Simulated scan of single mutants.
Amino acid sequence: MMTYKITIIAGARPNFMKIAPIIHAIQAAKDRGESLDYRLVHTGQHYDQNMSGSFFEQLNIPEPHVNLECSGGTQAEQTAAILVNFEKELMVNPADLVVVVGDVTSTMACALVAQKLHTKVAHVEAGIRSDDWTMPEEINRLVTDSISNYFFTTSELANENLLKTGVEDNQIFYVGNTMIDTLLKQKPNFRPPAVWNHLGLKPKSYIVMTLHRPANVDEESQLKAMVDEIIANTKELSLVFPVHPRTAKILERLNVSHPRLHMVDPLPYLEFNYLVENAKAVITDSGGITEETSVMNVPCMTLRDNTERPETITLGTNELVGTNPEAIKPYLDKLFNGDWKQYKTIPLWDGKTAERIVTHILSLTER
């Protein structure tokens, strides 16, 4: 029997959290005697100093088979570099299926290359929508979903979004969330970062902040107003802010500092989630963090005007605060009053998503 070859694409740090459980599930299927194998392609889209050997060790996955080294440049330059380099890669190492995850530039570009080389594409985390076309990620989602063959989804709403665009029911597989597979598997391994002891942190004595979206960090007056508002309304709590060096420079220039505000370097996965799990709350503009905080039942405030993950609001611990700094205070008041909502189970976010994905892929090999 011919081995069914899968090429798995990852381009940015969160992608690796999403593909780690898929790799484990493929390996388990191989160990059971199934005829399938994978090749892990890192496009190199994001250069991240924390993505060293220890990063792959933490996730218990091998280092990528190849790194296409497509970092830097504008959106167009990066897309072009990935198109050129991944085409060469796929021609030398053909696959039966290319699996793309999430919504980064690599997701869209590699799906496009695969289709032009007549290779089937499966999109993991398909069908989610913010309806905000100013977000590069939304364009990536729309394009990827318009040229994929199979769709692995995290919610019923994602299924509906796909059906509305004409995707056939038998192409959609509602499987859950692989990011949560990784979270649940790694939870026992969370460990305190150096900053935990350095700042003398205690559970629920601090708030974690993460801000990275251009709309929040590139508008200097907006960034300053948000941080000032958070400082003014968080009482005696420490504010731990793992911050991108570029954002740190802007804050320094704006003279944003406070004894309770601690800007630290970006943290590895196990250390960052230890901080999140023990935080009083998280203030963020990241989509993935809203999923993790929900499952860990940690209050989360999202400084965005929209979300592609509404289940984190209806069933999770997330609230959409918006981008007006003045909107932050009422949510912090609610937190300190002890009125924050509790996590209600999100269907299929149970740690078994990757197993379901591989079961479906095995059924595709018979089509």
Rank of each mutant, 00 (worst) to 15 (best):
F272A: 04
P347R: 09
I23V: 15
V256F: 09
Y274N: 09
G288V: 03
G287C: 05
N60V: 10
A20F: 07
V92G: 11
V298Q: 05
D131C: 11
L117W: 01
R32Q: 15
E87Q: 13
T105R: 11
T165L: 15
S286I: 02
V175G: 00
I250M: 09
T323H: 00
M209Y: 08
G287N: 01
I22G: 06
V276K: 03
D37V: 07
D265F: 10
T79V: 12
V167N: 03
V84F: 06
L362V: 03
A158E: 00
A281N: 10
V99N: 04
H258P: 09
R39D: 08
E236C: 03
E311S: 04
I9S: 10
V227L: 15
H118A: 14
L183M: 12
R141C: 06
G288E: 02
S205I: 07
I231D: 03
L184C: 03
A25W: 00
D350R: 05
L332E: 02
A279Y: 03
G33F: 08
N324K: 14
G44F: 05
L184I: 10
M17T: 15
F272Q: 00
K224N: 11
W196Q: 00
L270H: 00
A327P: 09
Y343D: 01
Y47K: 15
M17C: 14
D103F: 07
N278Q: 09
N15G: 14
E63L: 15
T365H: 06
V295Q: 01
I19C: 05
E137N: 05
G102Y: 06
N306Q: 13
T353C: 13
V227Q: 02
N318S: 12
L223I: 08
L163T: 10
L267R: 02
E326F: 06
M296S: 03
M51Q: 07
V92I: 11
V104M: 02
E271D: 09
P245G: 12
T247I: 02
N60K: 15
S155H: 07
E366G: 10
R141V: 03
A114K: 05
R213P: 06
L201Q: 01
S146Y: 13
L315M: 13
I128C: 06
E229W: 03
Q75L: 15
S71N: 15
V217S: 06
F241Y: 07
L261E: 06
T359D: 15
D350Y: 09
L199W: 00
M301P: 04
W133N: 08
H65L: 10
N170G: 09
E69C: 13
S71V: 10
F56L: 11
G53I: 05
L97H: 01
L267E: 07
